[in-house]
Amino acid sequence: MRQALADSLARAAQHNNKVLLLTGDHGYALFDDFRRLFPSRYLNAGVAEQNMVGMAAGLARAGYFPIVYGLSAFIPIRVLEQIKLDVCHSNLPVIFLGDGAGLVYSTLGTSHQSTEDIAATRALANLAVYSPADRFEMSAVLDLALSRRNPTYIRIGKCDLGEVHSTALTLANNDIPTLRERDSPISFIATGSMVKMAIALADEFGASVHSVPIIKPFNKELFLKITSHSQKIVTLEEHSVYGGLGGMIAELMSEKRPTNILRIGVDDRFSHNCGSYQYLLEDHGLDIESVRMKLRRFLG
């Protein structure tokens, strides 16, 4: 997935000589190709994220297409106001890449963990929010962001879990890819790193599975259509149960078609201890055994 990102960035710069890459001193090996091919279009802004985002807005106003990279705990969380005021308010073409979202930095603690970024960014007007699950979705959402030329946040979570799609895909602005099609009363709706788990548990519970790489703008009509048989919906995300994918689906269904929903995610708390990624998933009840138990309780 990271390689797909690196390749897409280099390809974007090749196609558009206004594409710039800004980093707040993060992403060491990720940008090797970009730096080699386009040294003057790579800017390490230093450990100064607020200034970096303001500058990105200035560069966009001067005709450039900045892609701003950082860890999701900092981009967008630390610089949320700069994203809102400097970029979103004028609808400037700036893409934000927030890496390591969720519990990826499992040993580093709360400063580097990011389970509130979707909630924070969803509420910013003009900002598209993408959350790819594998390398195919990664390439597709970056291509989509580059073609739309609007403010975009791309959430990059655990990226070495393997693929959920079998081939490359093109995402239109309103797609909700179906990964397990069934006329089932149970729908699993997942995003990012949790899509893989949704697929792993789908057969056991006879559920259909849909990935949501495009959190915003969300295609409500399509969602209501693909879940028209659903009596129970389960959302899965490596993010707080507040304000993220689960919150969004609950908002929609409560308005349009009240449905029983189980929101699986981080339950409004920080991690207590550190350890492996698997350890932290277990700590938050997001490992496959814990999720299976929650599903059994909910689905009966």
Binding site: L43, N51, M52, G54, G58, L59, R61, D86
Partner: peptide, 10 residues
């Protein structure tokens, strides 16, 4: 200030 720095860099 930062936006101005970006404009100047552009």
């Amino acid at each position: 200030f930062s936006i101005g720095v970006g404009l100047a860099m552009g």
